[in-house]
Design a protein around this nucleic acid. Structure first.
Length: 539
DNA sequence: AGTCCTTTGAAGGAG
DNA sequence: CTCCTTCAAAGGACT
């Protein structure tokens, strides 16, 4: 189970997870990539919008302007959102993902205090928030936004931040949001940035061992506990994700758990304060409560909703008794899921579409458009997620959740043929993304990874491997022509490139000669793959 | 109310 | 080892 660090550090052993796409040196490419990505989005959006909202193809801006019309009742919100969206766009285009420095990532990861494994299963979009070393321009009154009994009315921050959250409860700026001035004024480095951290158990400041400092989870439990939820303002709709933080800072809920700083910070980031007083039912076998443990009751909890922190304070725990059943421990989120959580809001904000299926398609394409390092960021996060998860639930198996979810309709796969697809409800994937449309975007008529000219795959081709890139572009990647949804029977073989990490595990360092060599073989491997979309015979 | 849709990735069982 | 299946998130759409 826990394939804990075999020595390579805290890796969970998932070294097979890196999709290499582009050479990171090419900033121009990136820029154009972004542009193309936007274009892709536009394309998709247009098609999607056309389909779902009968909006003639229009540019983003146009749509953005129209949005208010779409939702006249939330004009101010829209404006605000647009404003921030724009800000976000600028930030991102301006370098959010373009830091010249790769090692260690140019971001500061601010794990949020919400519970990623909560009933609604959300790893708060902000859970993995990367902040530029330079504090973002926007300072969000975090604590104020925290809808907990102690927090002041969020009203005063409505001017700055859309208190009215998106459908997905994620603010477009989520990834850029910083702590409130109150707690982290740009001029006053957040406590968590201080090399001195509080001992999770004693609360006594200590100097962490260098090796304990995770670039991704810089927050020490103590430090985290001493601050208000940085993203609380956007959490309200996250419902159970919003919790007030004990004034005294929140103690590490897993004293018995041996973790390195990175781990502990991760943990702390995932356990809401209310978990400090763990519900009996969610106690892990080790006596450790974990948010991932979701009692059926909680799970049913209407996501969303407005379970105020105060409510949590009252009954931080769901009905314990009722659920003798085995608590539902959710799977750790994978890289893409993490990415989705983070980017969904942005996509939603940029697109009038709200349907997750459509959004996810866009996200899927964007995912492929991400540069290597960008993806690495998420892979690393996911790896840590798994690592933490495995440590928390040594005996847990993904299999445990089988059948706990609604039945996968895939069941009828056997009888479902491509034809069924046409029979199905109008709401088919086709509707979301017409094949043509789908392919002209990131997939650029060849596959998701082939995207636009500035596609990652193109960029992937390091100067040393241009040809390889070309070949890769010819690959049928994630060709979204699956007639029947995700039917595996028609799943294209080799829909994705072989994880780069499978070639070079770490994948968190700049492309080295080795990387390039690996890329070469990688691409060569690809080249050897069938170029045509191969589907498995549907039995 | 429950499912489907859609995406990628991880995990584990089956062959 | 490969293939297949399930689940993870999300929320509108559908049954």
């Amino acid at each position: 189970m826990p394939q804990l660090n075999g020595g390579g550090g805290d890796d969970l052993g998932a070294n097979d997870e890196m999709i290499s796409f582009k050479d990171e040196g090419e900033q121009e490419e990136k820029i154009s990539e972004n542009v193309s990505a936007e274009r892709d989005l536009d394309d998709v959006k247009s098609s999607l919008v056309n389909e779902s909202e009968n909006n003639s193809s229009s540019s983003d801006s146009e749509q953005a302007e129209r949005r208010p019309q779409t939702r006249p009742d939330s004009e101010s919100y829209e404006k605000t959102r647009d404003y921030f969206s724009e800000a976000l766009r600028r930030q991102q285009d301006g370098g959010f993902f373009k830091s010249p420095h790769y090692p260690g990532y140019p971001f500061l990861m601010i794990p949020d205090l919400t519970n990623p494994y909560l009933s609604n299963g959300s790893l708060s979009p902000s859970a993995r928030t990367y902040l530029q070393m330079k504090w973002p321009l926007l300072d969000v009154p975090g604590s104020a936004g925290l809808k907990d009994s102690r927090s002041p009315t969020p009203g005063h921050l409505s001017n700055k931040v859309p208190v009215v959250q998106h459908a997905h409860h994620v603010h477009p700026l989520t990834p850029l949001i910083t702590y409130s001035n109150e707690h982290f004024s740009p001029g006053t480095p957040p406590s968590h940035l201080s090399p001195e951290i509080l001992d999770p158990k004693t609360g006594i400041p200590r100097t962490p061992h260098p090796s304990e400092l995770s670039p991704y989870y810089p927050l020490s439990p103590g430090a985290v506990g001493s601050i208000a939820h940085p993203l609380g303002w956007l959490m309200p709709q996250q419902g159970q994700h919003m919790y007030s933080i004990p004034p005294g800072g929140f103690r590490h809920p897993y004293p018995a758990l041996a973790m390195n700083a990175s781990m502990s910070s991760l943990v702390s980031s995932r356990f809401s304060p209310h978990m400090v007083t763990p519900p009996p039912h969610s106690l892990h076998q080790t006596g450790i409560p974990h948010p991932a443990i979701v009692s059926p009751a909680i799970k049913q909890e209407p996501s969303g909703d407005n379970i105020s922190p105060s409510m949590h304070a009252k009954s931080p725990v769901p009905p314990k008794k009722e659920e003798d059943k085995k608590p539902h421990i959710k799977k750790p989120l994978n890289a893409f899921m993490l990415y989705m959580k983070e980017m969904r809001a942005k996509v939603v904000a940029e697109c009038t579409l709200k349907e997750s299926a459509a959004i996810n398609q866009i996200l899927g394409r964007r995912w492929h458009s991400l540069s290597r390092e960008e993806q690495a960021k998420y892979y690393e996060l996911a790896r840590k997620e798994r690592q933490l998860h495995s440590q928390l639930y040594p005996g847990w198996s993904a299999r445990d959740n089988y059948g706990k979810r609604k039945k996968r309709k895939r069941e009828n796969k056997p009888d479902s043929k491509p034809e069924d697809f046409s029979i199905r409800s109008k709401k088919q994937c086709v509707q979301y993304l017409p094949s043509e449309k789908m392919c002209d975007s990131p997939a650029s008529s060849h596959g998701s990874m082939l995207d636009s000219p500035a596609t990652p795959s193109a960029a992937l081709a390091s100067p040393a491997a241009p040809a390889a890139t070309h070949s890769e572009q010819a690959q049928p990647l994630s060709l979204t022509t699956k007639p029947e949804g995700r039917s595996h029977s028609t799943t294209p073989i080799l829909t994705r490139p072989i994880p780069f990490t499978s070639l070079h595990p770490p994948m968190l360092s700049p492309p080295s000669p080795f990387h390039q060599a690996a890329l070469h073989s990688h691409h060569a491997l690809f080249q050897s793959q069938p170029l045509s979309l191969v589907t498995k015979p549907t039995e």
